[in-house]
Write a protein that binds this DNA or RNA. Structure first.
Length: 206
DNA sequence: GTATGGATTGTC
DNA sequence: ACAATCCATACT
């Protein structure tokens, strides 16, 4: 599988968000290779978006990577328990990113089960299997993405995104999840998902 | 040093 | 509907 070209990231955040759907996320560690197809994303554009961590160009140690060049990983820790993975977008100096909200497992399912439930794949139930990586915190736990992946190049050899032949799908668009505090930005239609993906309640609600 | 709350998830 | 859980951030 071919890694996404540098030019892929030379585009607007909203375009990249939609283009990321169907692409393949790979994390290699400890001689393992865990792979999933991206099926849901959200865009965050600091310049105009009260829901973004870097709104109003808020520059901190945490948001710093979003001010750098596109194609790098912004990983943040949330609710004392979970990590979330973003793809940094926009040219240097502009802060924006695309949150990866869900993947469909393609490879390394047993390791994902161990990472999520501490059980081999044959010992988890149907619901656990369905929910193994269908959320931003869940997919990071499943793929073992954590703070040491902060700032990683997404065109490197550890955490990267590949092209895929999976192009026949319809994109569904909606408001973003869990940003009710963000005033007018909460209504921005910046969530994109592949229509028809079997998923949990949260991601199937409109 | 202290306080506050969150781009979530699992369970009730 | 709500608790879990703790780091990042903003304050004093």
């Amino acid at each position: 599988m071919k890694k996404l070209d540098k030019s892929f990231y030379n585009d607007t955040t909203l375009n990249i968000a939609q283009k990321l759907l169907g692409k393949v996320l790979v994390h290699r560690y400890d001689d393992k290779e865990l792979v999933g197809r991206i099926v849901e994303v959200e865009a965050y554009i600091g310049a105009i978006d009260k829901a973004a961590h870097c709104y109003n160009n808020k520059r901190t140690k945490r948001t710093e990577v979003m001010f750098g060049p596109p194609g790098y990983a912004y990983v943040y820790f949330i609710y004392g328990m979970y990590y979330c993975l973003n793809v940094v977008t926009e040219k240097t100096g502009q802060c924006a990113a695309v949150l990866i909200r869900a993947i469909e497992p393609l490879k390394g399912l047993n390791d994902m089960a161990l990472n999520r439930y501490n059980k081999p794949i044959e010992d988890i139930n149907k619901r656990q299997k369905l929910n193994i990586a269908n959320g931003p915190g869940k997919l990071c736990m499943a793929l073992n993405i954590a703070k040491d992946d902060y700032g990683e190049s997404l065109r490197g050899d550890k955490l990267f995104i590949c092209e895929d032949g999976f192009k026949e799908f319809t994109i569904e668009q909606s408001k973003r999840i869990n940003i009710d505090y963000a005033e007018e930005a909460k209504d921005f239609m910046w969530r994109f998902l592949i229509k028809g993906i079997k998923d949990n309640k949260q991601t199937s609600k409109k």
